[in-house]
């Protein structure tokens, strides 16, 4: 794909999303603790080079949509006992996300 070409943004602010378990090797910026979990897009941040490419010296190519996604801490940690409204906000690239409908949320989580 051409330099700077934008991978289309598939999600909108307010939309529910699930984080995929892509089992990628190498440098990824999607921490394990949100994989397989469902949250909500709260902001479209912009288009960025994929860190998975940058980490191996690929400094050109398409740019990927990046979102801020909000999760409830009680959805991340089954034993979370504090305020049920407590939140975790984190950035996730488009290719790590799916619609929750297309994901069986809990079965995707590999421990």
């Amino acid at each position: 794909m051409a330099d700077g070409e934008r991978i289309p943004a598939r999600f909108q602010v307010g939309e529910r999303v699930a984080v995929l378990e892509l089992n990628k090797a190498g440098h990824v910026r999607t921490p394990h603790y949100i994989r397989g979990r469902a949250g909500e897009i709260i902001e479209f941040v912009g288009y960025f080079l994929n860190p998975e490419d940058l980490s191996v010296g690929i400094t050109s190519g398409p740019v990927y949509p990046l979102y801020r996604v909000r999760f409830l801490l009680k959805d991340l940690w089954p034993d979370y006992a504090r305020n049920p409204g407590d939140e975790l906000c984190i950035e996730v690239y488009d290719h790590w996300l799916a619609s929750p409908a297309s994901e069986s949320m809990n079965s995707t989580r590999a421990e």
């Binding site: 910026r29 999607t30 941040v45 960025f48 860190p51 801020r68 409204g85 407590d86 939140e87 950035e91």
Partner: peptide, 14 residues
């Protein structure tokens, strides 16, 4: 009591 905590994991470009 009742304060919502919002944790930000600074993991990517922000």
């Amino acid at each position: 009591e009742g304060t919502v905590i919002r944790v930000h994991d600074s993991n990517a470009d922000l």
